[in-house]
Design a binder for these strands. Structure first.
Lengths: 185, 185, 185, 185
DNA sequence: AATGAATGAGAATTCATTCAT
DNA sequence: GATGAATGAATTCTCATTCAT
């Protein structure tokens, strides 16, 4: 992966400030928020934003990439259930850009970052299955799907902690016992 | 609720065509799609759309309302699991407006339509619990939350049928066995 | 002047209601108010307005015509000073359409109605001069100009009664003594 | 009052061109004239107008403010009568925006600029009274009212120079002798 | 590299006017 | 004659993107 020449110190700093501002702004107003507002929040001029991210999509993609990288890091610190819980809580709290990216027309190549996350979750899944906390029949795709679904649900639904816990409890029970047709029934 | 005078036949027809067009257009392009495109698709002039729905939000709200009413109708024909499956499949297939409404700033009063849906699902839930297909400890809020989450997941994630089935299987197992801590463990 | 066939009773009634509504609406919102609002206020459909007044300008012209006719009638009941006072008070109170007509692009042929008013005022002026209440050098044009000016001033300025009285006092004094260079100075 | 950072030279130039164009356009077509026309006349793109004046009202308000400031400046060069004459002549000649602002719904905070003008006129009034050219009983409010009235009259009425002079003569005589009830009568 | 003004296509919304019923 | 839905041009305002400084 070519990163070009290393950024000058101030450019590096600006890039980070822009990403932080963008995450906050898009979380607050949705992907419709203007790039101008991001620049204002970051304390830089609009031109600087476009120098770092040639299009708005590039900016959204960069946010997403960073977010996924953070998730990978989190995955290393938890078991599958704790990870799920943590991520869902984060989604609601930080109003992550996750869903925004799915919106109209945002075309993003994130496969690399996504596959890192999938690897991390896959590893958690294997551990959980080794510990018999998750049924052996469960595969990675549905785990990812459930994770994404519940994050978006939490994000859009504005769930409280209690509802979050109850919803996750259903999913955790399902992950453990799916395919067993109930205890004996 | 005042409905005003009944619409003239042609106006009634246009209203329906606009709603159909809007559902299709917003499904295809997201809520950012222009009202102009909706008019074009409906085969009417832009002014006609705005006569029927004074703002774009009114149009989105009307779509949502109709969608929820359709869901209530579906609920009457299925048990809880079939309903879940059906709705999720629909979400992916029809790319319903569900999620679009959660987007940026769309302010909608839909409580009535939503509570109808909740009643319908509540009734399905009770049946399923009576049939011992769902654990007694499960409550309506988490069922609604799971439904919404999985719909959005399916919608954004572009799941295939197979993944849909596997994901739902986890949730169904969870609904049945949550709170039992496994068969005997 | 051809008036066409006499209007049907209901048409006659509608015409009057539309004029009343239009006067009120344009007074309240300015000439920018929509013809639709006028129709609503008059309790008729938009098409009816356009049947009576083929364009919006025709409607504005009709209001103006009626207003001027009313002024002519008033002129018959007062002396020049009372007339001035009365008209200015009316202008502020009824927020007449006077000024609205001067607005952008409204093209109106009102010469006939205007000349009636001028005749009426001319007559008042002659009486006042005969009574030595107005200097002989004063001519009709400046009286009309002052009348129009002060009406618009009152209308736009939102004068209270007191300011109205003081302003008119200056003008009345001027009408009496212009050309005398003061008492002796 | 925060003025922000000083504008770049080109922005400053554009701002002035836009104001000039707007004054001319609104004078010619009324406040209904489109912002697009203003941009065209100013030789800038529509976006540039909106960058300088976020809404059309802001643009109208800015014109008004500049106009009032010019009047204050004029006031310093004349006595009360010359000022009156000058302003009325200007009103007719330049078709100032004065009246346009009173139109439909234009909401403007101009108190500061207005009070500057009032101070200037107040000063002229005192001088004139000291010179016994205006009766002591005359107060500022009616002077302002007469000024505004006559400007609007001149503007809407399309007076010629001669009528202007005769109308002002009445007002000047009134200002001198009001309250004296005629020479002796 | 950063700045921030200029650009101009595009979107929502309004409204006079027409026309089928 | 009345009705009121349909029309579509015009208008205000937004925003991603470019470019001179």
């Amino acid at each position: 992966m070519v990163e070009g020449s290393p950024l000058r110190a101030d450019a590096q700093r600006n890039r980070a400030r822009i990403l932080d501002a963008a995450e906050a702004v898009f979380a607050e107003f949705g992907a419709r928020a203007s790039t101008e507002e991001v620049a204002r929040r970051a304390g830089v001029a609009i031109g600087t934003v476009f120098r770092h991210f040639p299009t708005k999509n590039d900016l959204l993609a960069a946010i997403m990439k960073r977010l996924l990288a953070q998730l990978v890091e989190e995955a290393g610190k938890h078991d599958l259930f704790a990870f799920f819980t943590h991520v869902v809580a984060q989604a609601a709290a930080k109003k992550t850009a996750v869903d925004l990216l799915a919106e109209s027309g945002v075309d993003i190549r994130l496969s690399e970052a996504v596959s890192h996350l999938e690897e991390a979750v896959s590893s958690l899944l294997k551990q959980a299955q080794a510990a018999e906390a998750v049924a052996d029949s469960v595969q990675l795709p549905e785990v990812m799907a459930l994770l994404a679904s519940v994050c978006q649900g939490a994000l859009h639904g504005g769930w409280g902690e209690h509802l979050q816990a109850r919803t996750l409890a259903v999913i955790f029970a399902g992950l453990k016992q799916v395919g067993q047709g109930g205890c004996r029934g």
